[in-house]
Amino acid sequence: MQTLEPILVEHPFFKDLEPRYLQLIIGCASNVRFDSGQFIFREGEKANQFYLLRQGKVALEVFSPERGAITLQTLGEGEVLGWSWLFPPYRWHFDARVLEPLRAIAFDGECLRTKCEEDHDLGYELVKRVAHIVIQRLQATRLQLLDIYGLHS
């Protein structure tokens, strides 16, 4: 597990995280790989993972019977995937399908949640970081909804 530490420290999500917190959560982490076309998770499944993406590309999709798979967003290196593990009912809301072979660090959601409950300072630190990502995504989503390149006459 010691080998994961340098990877975690370098990932933007954990930028400037205090080493003692890193030590607390490193036990929840593992190295994972996914191939193109593989689903990392599917809508409705139990959400118990949090991914720090290191390489490759993944699409968040929703499937419509008439229109097929609609991509909501693509994520890649330096970004994170999944926040449904943090809040009940711990279910994935969308599909995550790999577009380009993906390497990531996966955290066990339950493990992380337990650590956060035990140490609220860690919990606060982690929730702040997740909230930051959520806000960025929300802002980008609002822009996306505007259809700014469309004709509005």
Binding site: A69, L72, T74, I148
Partner: peptide, 12 residues
């Protein structure tokens, strides 16, 4: 901003 099916590029 929006894509379906064959698009493997970025969405967002």
């Amino acid at each position: 901003d929006q894509a379906m099916g064959a698009w493997h590029g970025n969405v967002g």
